[in-house]
Structures are given as structure tokens and as C-alpha cells.
């Protein structure tokens, strides 16, 4: 198979409910530790609140889900990893993080302009018995390694298995939907193959409302956003004069 998986996130539709963050964490066996904070926690998918900077009734707020952008060109994290624990999967375009190869030097985290990489500062832990509720398809990461969104690679894996059992070479796109896409209550996250010109996502990525964050860095992120609101689109530029607001930190 040969695909370039990516997303178009309709910011206008995002209500910031956080269902995607919960679904992502549950699917990927991300622990929730009582001692973790907004700066040390594990949120491979993080919904950020932004505003147009106004006060009173003209104030607008929007929510921007941030995750690994799966940069296609000169992928910053892949280039810097000293031991090939990060790679761009040739067949899918997914930037993969191999936890068992990672030595935890965190160089990739300093390289990522989107702050989409997270370090396991603690040993993963769940309240007694709760490990029975973990997703069997995903291995738990140990302390001291970096992790991030891999577009629910375990789901791609089972879709491939299903196709192989059926004797098919290509997976059924309906079998491979990342958890956040599935969880979104407004269908704001559209997932598909950007390499396929006929894929609706591919078309959407080229609409005038679509934009990418920090596109001028030249890393060709495969995560697009779109909005009808000009102030939201202005967030694509790092030095847009639009005032903005930070939610974490």
C-alpha cells in the first residue's frame, strides 16, 4: 500500500469538548498520573483554546487540536534522533516513534515546532485492576521514553490484518479511522489519504479556507486546519498581529 495519511480539522466545528483527547488517551493506553501537570503530562492530542483577543461581545474563541503533524519533508524529529527511533513510514507517511528503541534523550522534543511530543516523566501506572481495561492492541510505554500521536497505528495494523485474512492487498478505509476522528462529536476531524487526489480530505486540504500551522518552516505538515473565520486562519502565521491566548503553561 502507499498512502499519505493526513487530516483536515474544521476549526469552526470544534467545540473544545475534549472527547478526542479522552478517546486518544484511552485508545493508546496513555496513563493519567495524579502528579502530572500541563507541562509534564501526556497529551498526544491536545486541544488548545485561542481567541481573537477582543473583550466583550466581540470576543471569539476557537479550539485548535494539536497533535503530531506528521511532517512530510525534512521531518525535524526524524532527522535528529540519534538512533533511528523515529522514522517516516514510507508506505503511509506516518511519523512513527519506536518506544523500545528510544533512549529518552528528548532531542526530538526540542526539534518539534508544534510541541507535539511528550516524555514519560514517570512510570506508567493505573489504579489497581484498571490495567484490565487497557487496549490489548497497544503496548504501554515505559518511563524515560518519548511518545506522540502515531495516527492510531494499532488500528492500521488490525485493518491490514483484516485485509490479509480476506486476501486483499489494500485495506478498507472504513477499517482504519483514528480514535480522535471517531470520537469527534461534530465530525470536525476529517481523516484520509492526502496522496489520493480523489480523497475528499485531499480536496478539502486545497480549499481556500484550509491552512497549516507554521507552514513556512517548510516541513510540509500533513495536518491541515480550516476555518471560515479570518482571525482563525491568521493563526497560521507565527507573527500574526492577532492577539492570542494560551491555555496551558
Amino acid at each position: 500500500m502507499s498512502a499519505r495519511y493526513g487530516m483536515v480539522i474544521d476549526v469552526d466545528r470544534c467545540t473544545g469538548c475534549g472527547a478526542c483527547m479522552m478517546a486518544c488517551a484511552a485508545e493508546n493506553n496513555v496513563p493519567a498520573l495524579p502528579q502530572a501537570t500541563a507541562r509534564t503530562g501526556l497529551t498526544p492530542l491536545l486541544v488548545r483554546k485561542v481567541s481573537n483577543g477582543n473583550n466583550g461581545e466581540t470576543r471569539r474563541e476557537a479550539f485548535i487540536p494539536i497533535m503530531c503533524m506528521h511532517c512530510e519533508h525534512d521531518t525535524p524529529c526524524v532527522k535528529v534522533c540519534p538512533q533511528q527511533a523515529v522514522e517516516v513510514d514510507e508506505a503511509t507517511g506516518i511519523v512513527m516513534q519506536m518506544a523500545q528503541r528510544c533512549l529518552g534523550c528528548r532531542y526530538c522534543m526540542t526539534a518539534c515546532p508544534y510541541h507535539a511530543r511528550y516524555f514519560n516523566w514517570w512510570d506508567p501506572a493505573w489504579p489497581p485492576g484498571m490495567e484490565k481495561s487497557l487496549n490489548p492492541g497497544v503496548a504501554v510505554r515505559m518511563r524515560g521514553v518519548v511518545e506522540k500521536c502515531n495516527l492510531c497505528h494499532a488500528r492500521l495494523h488490525s485493518a491490514k490484518e483484516k485485509a490479509a485474512v480476506a486476501g486483499k492487498r489494500e485495506i478498507d478505509p472504513a477499517d482504519y479511522v483514528p480514535a480522535c476522528v471517531e470520537a469527534c462529536s461534530t465530525n470536525a476531524i476529517h481523516f484520509g489519504d492526502l496522496g489520493d487526489a480523489n480523497d475528499p480530505v485531499s480536496k478539502e486540504a486545497h480549499s481556500p479556507q484550509a491552512f497549516r500551522l507554521l507552514a513556512r518552516l517548510g516541513t510540509e505538515p500533513k495536518l491541515y486546519y480550516k476555518s471560515n473565520e479570518a482571525w482563525v486562519r491568521a493563526l497560521a502565521e507565527p507573527n500574526s498581529p492577532q492577539a492570542s491566548e494560551v491555555q496551558r503553561g
Binding site: 475534549g18 483527547m21 496513555v30 502530572a36 503530562g41 497529551t43 484498571m130 496551558r248 503553561g249
Partner: peptide
Amino acid sequence: WATQWKPVVMPPLASKLYQESGLR
């Protein structure tokens, strides 16, 4: 809080929304 329904306890993962991020 996310729903008008108030659960007795939150699933531990809910801390992703209000502790490991400032979303809520």
C-alpha cells in the same frame, strides 16, 4: 462539567482535560 450530569467520580483519564491541560 462536560455534561449537565455530574458524575460521582471522574474517570482518571479526565485529568487530561483539566490537569494535564487547561482545556477545562
